[in-house]
Design a protein around this nucleic acid. Structure first.
Lengths: 181, 181
DNA sequence: GAATATATATAACGACCTTTATATTTATTG
DNA sequence: CAATAAATATAAAGGTCGTTATATATATTC
């Protein structure tokens, strides 16, 4: 039947609702309603709400990285600045209200280790990514630089909640230029 | 009777539990249990869970500012660096897992405007505070500088969740020194 | 020491939640 | 076209949640 389509509908509806209202603030009823799907269809694809959360996080991680990679890869001259810009564009399109992974860590730490680990590994991947970029441009303290920019992106995401994407990205770019090159 | 004591017990227990497990992840039953208080004592002091959340946020805001003010005020030579350091100490003592106000904005935006406004006003106060510091040291672009440091503190809080307080503060201090003075 | 105010214990309400059960319908496949 | 697989509608179980009700105990105040 429509198996793959229905599953995708569920994941997309869940991702949007979880992001907007939090994992605990959204019930399965709302998810199946927005996905136009029956209750048992959800349980046919996901064995529990928490497993649905896991797959939502995995999907969002994939989307984030394919988005970032596409924008950063080609500009090998200034990879860090373009990463900040790319992250800003991601925020503008998909993430105007905090970070879903950070939220998952907070919500499920001590309650569900699988979910927490998925979210944490996403964050450590961000750090590794910047370390890779730092090595590529021959930076000596590549670990330091990687941490600076991870902090910068995390700060940009938080600031977006407070002052909007445009201004947040603008200030982040200005800071970035003072730190590198 | 023990009225003020019981109310304080409730606020303290609620603040800790809300911070550790999220507003929606904690039930009133756990709060009254940890506060060693009866159900009706809670409703005698707070008309609903959401009003309890409001007062918890107000209490936490007061604690944060009295903490920060005490550490920053005297060091008029390098107010920005000492603000970063003070924020780091606050994180070490009280805030190892994300920011309660940011979380309140995310959890209650669209659901409870009073709570959201309290949390947002806390954040705008942080921005105003840095603008005041920037003017005091005679900085030209005091608005820019204030935004840089607000972003820096927000980033530090997020990074604390990921790499711990010590390292997060360390990197934040290094970035701060590249930005000011 | 009686009156007042607050805390306590306990139970119940109705709403909502996640999950399971059951029986029916719909589309795909051999 | 029969068989299989998946989606649907509906309901109910079992739990937790916030909130209210009630009646009792305890400390403070005049």
């Amino acid at each position: 039947m429509n198996t793959p389509v229905k599953k995708a509908d569920l994941l997309n509806a869940a991702e949007r609702l979880f992001y907007e209202h939090g994992f605990r603030g959204v019930g399965l009823k709302q998810i199946i309603s927005e996905a136009n799907v029956a209750t048992m269809t959800l349980y046919n694809h996901f064995s529990s709400k928490e497993h649905l959360v896991e797959e939502v996080l995995k999907q969002r991680e994939e989307r984030y990285w394919s988005y970032l990679d596409a924008l950063v890869q080609d500009e090998i001259e200034t990879p860090f600045l373009s990463a900040v810009e790319a992250h800003g564009k991601w925020l503008a399109e998909e993430s105007y209200q905090g970070d879903m992974f950070l939220r998952a860590i907070e919500d499920y730490s001590g309650a569900n280790n699988d979910i927490e680990n998925i979210a944490r590994s996403h964050k450590s991947r961000l750090l590794r990514y910047f370390q890779m970029l730092a090595k590529r441009i021959g930076e000596d303290d590549h670990s330091d630089l990687a941490h600076y920019f991870t902090l910068l992106l995390e700060g940009t995401t938080s600031m977006t909640t407070l002052i909007g994407v445009e201004k947040a990205t603008e200030y982040a770019m200005a800071m970035a230029k003072r730190i590198v090159y």
